[in-house]
Simulated assay, not measured.
Amino acid sequence: MLGLIAKIAWEQLIGPSSTTGELINARVAIEAHLAGALLEASWLWRYGYRIKSNPQ
């Protein structure tokens, strides 16, 4: 989990590696990683607690 957070933070602050930038449209990939991480975090915040506090 910490590795994922570090990778996304690195991409947002420093930018992609030169090889990634050459292979794909790096800006789109960086924004997609951030959006996916934020959506997953919001899902876990909303539903993860319910699953943990009310196991069935």
Rank of each mutant, 00 (worst) to 15 (best):
M1W: 03
M1K: 04
M1Q: 05
L2T: 09
G3P: 02
L4E: 11
L4T: 07
I5M: 00
I5C: 00
I5P: 00
I5E: 02
A6E: 04
K7W: 02
I8A: 02
I8C: 02
I8D: 02
A9Q: 11
A9I: 07
W10H: 11
W10P: 00
W10A: 03
E11L: 13
E11S: 12
E11W: 14
E11M: 08
Q12F: 12
Q12I: 08
L13P: 02
L13I: 13
L13F: 14
I14F: 09
G15D: 12
P16I: 03
P16Q: 06
P16N: 05
S17H: 11
S18A: 07
S18T: 14
S18L: 15
T19V: 11
T19H: 15
T19P: 00
T20R: 15
T20A: 11
T20S: 15
G21F: 12
G21T: 10
G21C: 10
L23R: 12
I24S: 12
I24N: 13
I24H: 12
N25P: 09
N25R: 10
A26E: 14
A26G: 10
R27T: 08
R27W: 10
R27A: 13
V28G: 05
V28S: 11
V28Y: 14
V28W: 08
I30N: 12
I30D: 10
E31F: 11
E31R: 15
A32P: 07
A32Q: 09
H33F: 13
H33V: 13
L34Y: 11
L34G: 09
L34P: 06
L34K: 13
L34I: 12
L34W: 14
G36D: 06
G36H: 05
A37H: 05
L38C: 15
L39K: 15
L39T: 06
E40M: 10
A41Q: 09
A41Y: 07
S42L: 13
W43V: 09
W43P: 01
L44D: 01
L44F: 04
L44K: 01
L44R: 00
W45Y: 10
W45E: 00
R46T: 10
R46D: 00
Y47V: 09
Y47G: 04
Y47M: 07
Y47D: 05
G48W: 00
G48R: 00
Y49I: 09
Y49Q: 06
R50W: 04
R50G: 02
R50Y: 02
R50H: 04
I51K: 05
I51W: 01
I51A: 02
S53Q: 11
S53W: 00
S53Y: 01
S53C: 06
N54F: 14
N54E: 13
P55N: 07
P55L: 07
P55C: 00
P55H: 06
Q56C: 04
Q56H: 13
